[in-house]
Nucleic acid binder design. Structure first.
Lengths: 324, 324
DNA sequence: TTGAAAGCGCTAACAA
DNA sequence: TTGTTAGCGCTTTCAA
């Protein structure tokens, strides 16, 4: 390679890495040789000396397959992938299967095989965040970890779940609705808790019977909607914890002969287009830019050290469609 | 490390890699030192000399987010992840976004950063398989690639889509059904084509009006079911290309007042438990062991060279529940 | 059975 | 601005 370009290996290295201080004539020669030989630097050799890996672990801690199947993850992963790709950083995927795996992941991260970790840990009692903190790897969490404020020092990226929920409920209020219910998400996840809190912020006096527990799935939405209709037959609005839940609720409302939005107005959360635009009527919902959250996580991780990384909470936006 | 155990680096290396020919006394000393020091071998240094990477790329070529969100992928990825983890091989995830990315992936794979690739390319006209063949990396495909027989030399792992479909339709026939329809999957994927072929194997005389095009989604299933009922009101059975499609079909059947299975029997495909067991009535469906397919892909890839790797088609099994 | 020594391909410090 | 050199941490001959 160096021979082909008629320069030293050091110069090749400088050109390949875009270091300044190489005469354009030489640089051009090197680039030509690179092209001709299809030269690709050996990551291992580079890593050995730079002590960087140009690799980031994405840890998805989820015993249940269902969650991985949530379009939510897919989108976030897309965002991460795009950002990493553009910086030529490898995405090493770590899926965990129950508690035993946590230790394994901890070991892996401590092992110094990656430059950092992007961690999705959905459940409030998950020990993984703690283990990862202990591993001493730069980490950014996806979604606010369910730990007491201050315990976790790594930053997270989340959307304003509580504020978004408030917007949704306020919108229903502004429509003149007075018997507004909420179908929660899986309440061992902070996003579900935060959305419930937002609901309560606006309607502190809503009774318990206006809140039904869901689990972020359409089936959960159906179940909860039935409960609500049984408990409060004259309900006139529902704020669902996410779009999938809302889609289930819509189905039950139709089945029970309630018109949407005339009889019951429905608002979702996420603005998952594949759901929100497909249901009938199209869903009024709270949009969060999921892919951007993924991107941002990657950017923060790779920028760490340069900037003291604070957690970021992205704004949401109410998107009006037919359902409310 | 070597100092701590009082042996040479060479001996440490032998113990860590499980090479034979080290006295147990020494081996024990080394293991003790490893534990105490929390020693983890440096992958880069190892890779530099062994010219292996202990890393495998998983390439998911899918412009649409939807497909990644399919539980199908999640399960297969789980299987892959388990197998790789147990062998201490890294899973490097490569997501592609449209055609431009294909070249990038090709370059990456040619670059010799991984020991092999597991590739999911869903669409018949996808250029990616060709590019990957050219990259000269050991590859195993997930699902039969939509290329003329013999063009692609890398093996694939798939389930017996055609045979499974035949079983499903034969089951409906054995139930005495005579007006059996099929809702297809996305027909630019081989799995959808094969299942349609299986349907036609058993019912070569079924007219075109008994076949409605779906796309593997519940919404597609609903649409197709409506079409079918409009075209053939006295239909008495439906074989849906997958469980999600079947769930959509069930919804429409209920909406139109058809009883399942009394009026219309329904069979799905996949045995996605989250769907098949949840719908009402529970779905009779064709089971494929998706996670095992993922496992097998990884195993084949890592065994290549040792065995001449032939493609593997796993058997399916009809699972009877309430819908047929 | 063990150790000494070479060297994998690269970058970074230093010298020219 | 460029080249020379040392060395990253491991495995793998080869010799003892």
């Amino acid at each position: 390679m160096a021979a082909r370009a008629g320069v030293s290996r050091a110069t090749v290295s400088r050109v390949v890495n875009g270091d300044a201080g190489v005469r354009e004539v030489l640089a051009e020669k090197v680039r030509k040789a690179v092209d001709e030989l299809g030269y690709v630097p050996n990551r291992a050799a580079r890593s050995l000396v730079t002590r960087r890996h140009d690799a980031v672990a994405v840890v998805i801690a989820e015993p249940e397959t269902r969650v991985f199947a949530d379009p939510f993850f897919a989108l976030q992963l897309r965002g991460i992938s795009k950002e990493l790709t553009s910086r030529d950083v490898q995405l090493v995927l770590l899926l965990t299967e129950g508690r035993d795996d946590h230790e394994r992941v901890g070991r892996y991260l401590s092992g110094g095989h990656v430059d950092g970790a992007l961690v999705f840990s959905l459940h409030l009692d998950d020990p993984l965040p703690g283990i990862i903190q202990g591993a001493g790897v730069p980490t950014v969490f996806g979604g606010r970890p369910g730990w007491p404020e201050g315990t976790v020092t790594s930053p997270y990226v989340d959307c304003d779940n509580r504020g978004g929920a408030r917007d949704a409920v306020r919108h229903l209020v502004s429509l003149g609705r007075t018997r507004i219910a909420h179908i929660t998400g899986e309440l061992d996840q902070t996003s579900a808790v935060d959305r419930l809190d937002g609901f309560r912020d606006v309607l502190p006096d809503a009774g318990e019977r206006f809140v039904a527990r869901g689990d972020f799935t359409p089936a959960g939405g159906e179940r909860a909607m039935r409960e609500l209709l049984d408990r409060v037959p004259d309900i006139d609005a529902v704020f669902a914890a996410n779009d999938l839940t809302a889609s289930g609720a819509l189905r039950v409302l139709r089945e029970r002969g309630r018109r949407v939005p005339e009889d019951v107005a429905v608002v979702g959360f996420d603005d998952m287009l594949a759901v929100a635009e497909q249901v009938d009527p199209p869903l009024t919902t709270v949009r969060q830019d999921i892919e951007e959250m993924g991107r941002l996580m990657a950017r923060m991780l790779l920028a760490k050290g340069e900037l003291p990384a604070e957690s970021v909470v992205l704004p949401t936006k109410l998107v009006r469609r037919g359902s409310a």
